[in-house]
Design a protein around this nucleic acid. Structure first.
Lengths: 217, 217
DNA sequence: GACGAGATTTAGTCATAGCTAATTCCGGAG
DNA sequence: CTCCGGAATTAGCTATGACTAAATCTCGTC
C-alpha cells in the first residue's frame, strides 16, 4: 500500500464512519461530512476506486474494500490513541481533543504510535469511550445500551459520549455526563418528553434524542 | 498573517538556517537543502516574495523579512519543543527525534504548543543543544566554542551536536559525545590530523572537521 | 572588454484537490 | 409509462508545488 495522501485518509475515515451508521454511503452524505461540494466528493470516490480502496457504483454510492477499511482503521487508531494521550498526559479537555487529534493523526509515524501505545499501557478506548483499534487494527464493537435503556430508579455509568461536537461536549461536561461517571435515571417523561438524570453535579433534564446518543452500562 | 502552507513553512525554516550560516541565500543552496530542483526553488522564492516573507533579488538570492523571520522562528520553536518532548517524555533516541519532529511540527496548534512548553517546564534548549525560541519568538544565540577550542589536557562538557544527520548522531552517541556529557581533550594531532578525546566510554579519535561541529563549554 | 561555465530563470507539464455551471440519471407520482 | 425533482456526474477552471528542457544572466578569466 503506497502512501495515502492526507485527503485520501480523511475520506477513508469519513466513509468508514458513515458505513458504520448507514450502510449506503452516498455522494451527498460524504460531501456533507467532508464539507466539500458534491462534485469534489464524486471525483475523490473515483480516485479511491482506482486506488482499490473503495468499490464505487455510479449513482449508487461507495463501499470500502478490505484494503480501504484497513486504511480507515489505521487513521482511526492514530486519532483515538492521540486523543487518549492528549487527555491523559497533557491534560487537554474532552471537548478540545478531537480537533487536536485531527491535526496530528496524519503526522504520526508507526514508531511513535507504538511508543505512545506502550506509554499509555495499551489502552482500549479513547476518552469519549470509543474503542481504539489494536496493533493488528482489530476493532472491538461494544454493543451498547444508551441512557434511555436505564429504568427510572436504576443507575449505571456512562460508557461513551458523542465526539466531534465540542459545544455539546462542553455542555455534557457541565452536567457531569462524562465517560466513567455514575448516573441515576430519575425519570423519563412520556410523549417524547425529556429525560431526567442525577449525576454528581445534581439533577439535569436533557432531550430524549440526546440521551439516546449517550451510551451507558 | 494568513495561514502559511506546509511547504512555505519548510522553505522559511530552510532559509532561516541558511541565513544563519551564510548570509547569502542562493537559489541553488535553497534547492539543495530542500531536495528540490532549482526551478522549483525559484518559483517558491517568488511566491514568498509576493507573500511579503522574503525580499528577493533576481539572480542574487533572498533575505527574510521581519514577517518571514517570525514565521521561520515559529516553525523552529515547534520543531525544537517537540524534539525536547519526544526525548524527555516518550524516550525517543537522539538520532530519531529530528525526523519525527519534522513530521509533527506543522500539526501543532498554539494551545498544544503552550501545554507542552509548560509540561516541560519551559525548556530553553532542544536535546541537540540548540536554543528554543521563547513564546515571543526571541532566540538566544549562544556564542559557543567548539571541541577544537579545548586545550589538550583540559575538560569541558558538550553543549551542542549537529542535528538532522541521524547516522552521525548514532555514531556520536556510541562515542559518548552527547549534550551534557563530560569530555576531556587528550590530544590534537598537527597538520589537520585527528583529535583525540576521552569520554565516559573511553578514548576516541575523530576528525578535526567533526570536532569543529561539536560545541563545548 | 569579450567569452564561456555555471547559476538562474522562463516556458511548458503534471498531479492533487478544490470550485461553479451545466448536464444527466433515478425513482416516485401521477 | 411518462414526467419531474433532487441526486449525481461531467465539463471546465483554479491554486499549490513539483518536474524537465531551454533560454538567459553573471562573473571570473583572458
Amino acid at each position: 500500500m503506497p502512501d495515502l495522501t492526507v485527503a485520501v485518509q480523511d475520506y477513508l475515515k469519513a466513509i468508514y464512519v458513515l458505513e458504520t451508521s448507514d450502510e449506503r454511503v452516498t455522494t451527498s452524505a460524504l460531501a456533507q461530512r467532508m464539507a466539500v461540494s458534491a462534485p469534489s466528493a464524486t471525483a475523490m470516490t473515483k480516485r479511491l476506486d482506482e486506488l482499490g480502496l473503495v468499490k464505487r457504483v455510479p449513482h449508487r454510492g461507495v463501499a470500502l474494500t478490505d484494503t480501504g477499511r484497513l486504511g480507515a482503521l489505521e487513521v482511526l487508531r492514530h486519532h483515538r490513541l492521540l486523543e487518549r494521550y492528549l487527555v491523559d498526559r497533557l491534560g487537554l479537555a474532552l471537548d478540545e481533543v478531537h480537533a487536536e487529534a485531527e491535526l496530528l493523526e496524519h503526522a504520526l509515524s508507526e514508531e511513535l504510535e507504538a511508543k505512545i501505545d506502550a506509554e499509555l499501557g495499551f489502552p482500549t478506548h479513547d476518552p469519549h469511550g470509543d474503542p481504539i483499534p489494536d496493533r493488528e487494527l482489530r476493532l472491538v464493537h461494544d454493543v451498547s445500551r444508551t441512557l434511555l435503556d436505564l429504568e427510572p430508579g436504576s443507575s449505571g455509568s456512562i460508557a461513551r459520549v458523542p465526539d466531534g461536537d465540542s459545544e455539546l461536549l462542553r455542555y455534557l461536561g457541565e452536567l457531569g455526563l462524562v465517560p466513567e461517571a455514575e448516573v441515576e435515571m430519575v425519570a423519563q417523561a412520556p410523549f417524547g418528553g425529556p429525560v431526567t438524570v442525577r449525576t454528581s453535579s445534581g439533577e439535569h433534564a436533557i432531550s430524549r434524542e440526546l440521551a439516546d446518543r449517550i451510551a451507558a452500562a
